[in-house]
């Protein structure tokens, strides 16, 4: 009886196999921009700048064109040379990043990272920095779990961006020798921990925190952010879908 069933299954199976329904598909990419940021952060040599204030204003205006325009994020190249006066901080640093150890191989001053006139967060692959803001990782695993108001969270240990020399990976063309070109720049550790990629033991190991993060911007307003997805419907990584509540008061 079992064999009759087995052979029947085979007889009805396509030559391209069976049991397709046992598996899942990657979630279809949404174009719904309602309280959602869709960021193509697949490249390593650019920062993508997001202006939450502009998006909020566009939503208030009710104009679809304005909303789409606010989601047309500014992308800026990461400088790898110095053409003018050095700001004393920004640099291109080659690091040997092996499992558990980081050794600086060389460091070259570069131009200051160019920025648009107005922005709140910038995204580089899975790295995030703020525009003179600070951030905090909550213990909540979805936006819907957040209390109704910020005050219900109690005291919050806001963390400003910190200068890093080995986190923002610009050049991975020698990564199999663990020689990685990095940008020396300040990033937000809580926001950057929403997703991470570790190439110190190839192939890359991915980790996600699955936690809601709070972003306090320079004007004191607060946004709640949650990384829904980092993969597109074809399985390519670096396509971020971030849900948010702004303002979160």
């Amino acid at each position: 009886m079992i064999y009759m069933l087995g052979m029947s299954l085979m007889a009805f199976s396509a030559c391209s196999g069976m049991f397709e329904n046992l598996y899942d598909q990657y979630p279809a990419q949404t174009d719904d921009l309602n309280a959602r940021l869709l960021v193509d952060a697949t490249t390593y040599d650019t920062w993508t700048y997001i202006d939450l204030h502009a998006i909020a204003d566009a939503i208030v205006s009710g104009s679809n064109e304005s909303i789409a325009e606010a989601h047309n994020f500014c992308v800026m190249q990461i400088p790898q040379t110095l053409t003018g006066e050095w700001d004393g901080v920004t640099a291109y640093t080659r690091q040997e990043i092996k499992l558990g150890t980081t050794t600086e191989l060389s460091s070259t001053p570069t131009d200051t990272q160019p920025e648009p006139a107005s922005w709140d967060i910038a995204i580089h692959h899975f790295d995030i920095r703020t525009n003179r803001g600070s951030a905090f990782e909550t213990q909540f695993s979805s936006l819907s779990q957040l209390p109704g108001s910020l005050s219900e969270l109690g005291p919050i240990d806001w963390q400003p961006d910190v200068l890093t020399t080995d986190r923002v990976w610009v050049d991975l063309s020698r990564s199999l020798s663990f020689d990685i070109g990095c940008q020396t720049i300040a990033i937000s550790l809580p926001l950057s921990s929403m997703a991470s990629m570790d190439v110190s033991n190839p192939p890359p190991i991915y980790q996600v925190s699955g936690k809601v993060c709070l972003l306090r911007m320079s004007d004191g307003t607060v946004a709640a952010l949650f990384l829904d997805n980092y993969i597109n419907d074809k399985g390519f990584k670096g396509h971020l879908t971030i849900s948010y509540i702004y303002p979160y008061q």
Binding site: C15, S16, G17, E20, Y23, D24, Q25, Y26, P27, S141, S142, A195, Q207, V208, G210, F226, L227, D228, N229, Y230, I231, G235, T241
Partner: peptide, 20 residues
């Protein structure tokens, strides 16, 4: 296994070889 909301628990086929 341990991922963002939209991916959590997904088991996505990336490779299939079928021989008849």
């Amino acid at each position: 296994a341990q991922s963002s909301m939209l991916l959590s628990g997904l088991n996505v086929r990336e490779y299939s070889n079928v021989q008849n």
